[in-house]
Design a protein around this nucleic acid. Structure first.
Length: 575
RNA sequence: GCGCCCUUAGCUCAGUUGGAUAGAGCACGAGACUUCUAAUCUUGAGGCCGCAGGUUCGAAUCCUGCAGGGCGCACCA
């Protein structure tokens, strides 16, 4: 139990006695009662809003109710003072021992500190990356990959059973184009001069290897053969190679999915037909004709009857076709079936998408709501674009020549940890700049460095104390810790709350911001020792105080490691 | 024309799902290095939370309208 949960239960007990005494009516909903750290630390250690939330339904004045709750809370041993402030806040000040005890808790739980079971019983499927298997990963995929992976870590830490999934779009027109591009490279590998790559095909050099491999394995038998004879084969081979490449790219970032789902396999298994039948039976799919969109003229518009999903019933502004006029499935039609399949295996679904797909969120949410009859929680997290800069100047990217900035190049240049941390320094739905120069700067402007530096400082202090004083961290005399140290502990004790909020809000960036704050607090404490030698961690004349402060520093280090681990970043022991 | 996202200090951004006097960093002013790693810290100034209504004990946060910016708008993926 965290400190906050412990004191929430004290508040609950106090409310129970008030109900028993007839001051409060029974059955008041208490879900809005919160015990939280106050924003302003001068207000105490914990703040509770119970009196304000319950006063109205109970028909009493907030401050009167607050006074009654306060009376009962004052009887709790570990609570030093209870003040009533503002409109009826209960401000609790805890005995210092409570915080010292939390420090021992951190030490005892170690890498598990912050783990909770709040997500227990709710399995989550999180689909992220799902880049089209037509080439290597580039920076456009990077942010979604990191956000998805970090979120998966956070959810797991919060007790959810998590499935990390990648959806392979291996059934659309793009992979046919890929197959044709590879066929060209295959002919090239057999000695043909193919000249410049025609418009509409993928020009990238990364297809050379696949072409060469197929030339070696298949010989020249498909050089002159009609497309119908080789398209499927070349498509499968090319997709397999592209996926191998993508997996290798993801591995550079430390990302490993549990499940790779193939769109082609979905169709083979008749999943789309099954979903359609299900929806038709409930009149959620019908054959109809779409109107031409208003405010936009389409030259070759022709009204066609298509099977349409009634997404307007779920708030979309148009019903959406699940099949094309040529009979094949639309992306949406397949995606609908795919989400149906995912919903069979998990209680909650999360998709991480690029913001350019924002327009399709409504229809897929509608589809999932329809297919699962609203039973499966489903979230789409949109991830905004990343602008690449070098020293403030935009990095030029040309998709046409195939010379985009690849993920592998970036990881090679700045390292996995810098990429991952930086991608989490903004809310996912806010635009972000990634400056190659800035992200590797060794200064406090650079949060990656700043947090790493705090950790390295802690580790080096531990080493130094051991080497020069033969003193190790110890909890024997934690009573020697003062007010400044307690501030630090208070901050450290928030970690479990932060993890929980990051999990429930699905916002992994909160971990990064918290670590920045924690690092700042540690750096501040450290520098206090410059002005006040009695506040240094290492006190050569005082082994007991040194041991206690080392214990504190070690636990701060532990939390930084735990937070970084959730982000998928390794902690540095020295810099 | 419609839908979604955004608008917070000069700049870049947080804001614990509705809490108290709205916070950081950069930049600007003033300070701290014979150090425990100054790769850091302390301190000052800086605000109509885009605008206008509404909801309530209480709004940057929720609702409505408006303005400005971004993205997307037949069968593409």
């Amino acid at each position: 139990m965290t400190i906050y949960q412990t004191y929430a239960s004290h508040v609950n007990a106090a409310l129970d006695t008030l109900v028993a005494d007839g001051v409060l009516p029974p059955d008041l909903p208490r879900d809005k009662v919160a015990v939280e750290p106050p924003r302003d630390t001068t207000h105490g250690d914990l703040a509770c809003n119970a009196a304000m939330v319950l006063a109205k339904p109970a028909g009493v004045k907030p401050r009167d109710l607050a006074e009654k709750i306060a009376e009962r809370l004052r009887a709790v041993d570990s609570i030093d003072t209870v003040d009533i402030a503002g409109p009826g806040f209960l401000n609790l000040r805890l005995d210092d021992g409570v915080w010292r005890e939390e420090l021992r808790e951190i030490a005892a739980q170690g890498a598990d500190y912050g783990r909770s079971d709040s997500g227990k019983g709710v399995s989550v499927n999180i689909e992220y990356v799902s880049a089209n298997p037509t080439g290597p990963m580039h920076m456009g995929h990077c942010r979604g990959a990191v956000v998805g992976d970090a979120l998966a870590n956070v959810l797991q830490f919060a007790g959810h059973e998590v499935t990390r999934e990648y959806y392979i779009n291996d059934a659309g027109g793009q992979v046919d184009t890929l197959a044709r591009s590879v066929h060209l490279r295959y002919r090239e590998a057999l000695g043909e001069d193919v000249g410049t790559i025609p418009e509409g095909l993928y020009p990238g050099d990364y297809l050379l290897a696949t072409g060469a491999r197929l030339a070696e394995e298949l010989g020249d038998r498909y050089v002159r053969a009609p497309e119908s004879e080789w398209l499927v084969l070349f498509r499968e081979e090319a997709v397999a190679d592209m996926m191998a490449m993508i997996r290798a790219d993801l591995a550079l970032l430390g990302i490993h999915h549990d499940v790779f789902s193939s769109e082609a396999a979905l169709h083979k298994g008749g999943k789309a037909e099954a979903a359609e039948a299900d929806l038709r039976a409930r009149d959620l799919v019908y054959d109809g004709v779409l109107e031409q969109p208003k405010g936009k003229t389409i030259e070759d518009w022709e009204p066609v009857e298509l099977p349409l999903f009634r997404s307007t019933q779920f708030g979309d502004d148009q019903d959406r076709p699940i099949k094309k006029s040529n009979g094949s499935w639309t992306y949406f039609g397949a995606d609908l079936a795919y989400h149906y399949q995912k919903a069979q295996g998990s209680d909650a679904l999360i998709d991480i998408w690029g913001a350019d797909h924002a327009g399709t969120v409504k229809r897929i949410k509608a589809a999932v709501a329809a297919l699962t009859e609203g039973k499966t929680a489903f979230d789409v997290k949109l991830v905004q674009m990343v602008k690449l800069l070098r020293g403030g100047e935009p990095v030029k990217m040309s998709k046409r020549s195939g010379s985009f900035v690849t993920l592998a190049e970036v990881v090679e240049e700045v390292g996995k940890d810098v990429v991952r941390f930086t991608m989490l320094t903004r809310k996912a739905d806010a635009q972000m700049e990634f400056d190659f120069v800035q992200v590797v700067e060794a200064s406090k402007d650079n949060p990656v460095f700043y947090v790493q530096y705090a950790h390295a400082r802690i580790q080096s202090t531990l080493r130094k104390a051991l080497a020069e004083m033969e003193v190790s961290p110890s909890d024997a005399r934690l009573d020697l810790l003062g007010a400044e140290e307690n501030e630090l502990i208070r901050m450290a004790a928030q970690f479990p709350r932060i993890v929980e909020s990051a999990a429930s809000a699905r916002e992994p960036h909160r971990i990064a911001f918290y670590l920045g704050d924690l690092a700042a607090a540690f750096h501040a404490f450290w520098n206090l020792g410059n002005d006040r030698p009695d506040k240094r961690i290492i006190m050569t004349q005082d082994a007991e105080t040194t041991a206690a402060r080392l214990y504190l520093a070690a636990q701060i280090g532990q939390i930084i490691r735990n937070g970084l681990a959730l982000m998928g970043v390794d902690a540095a022991d020295s810099m």
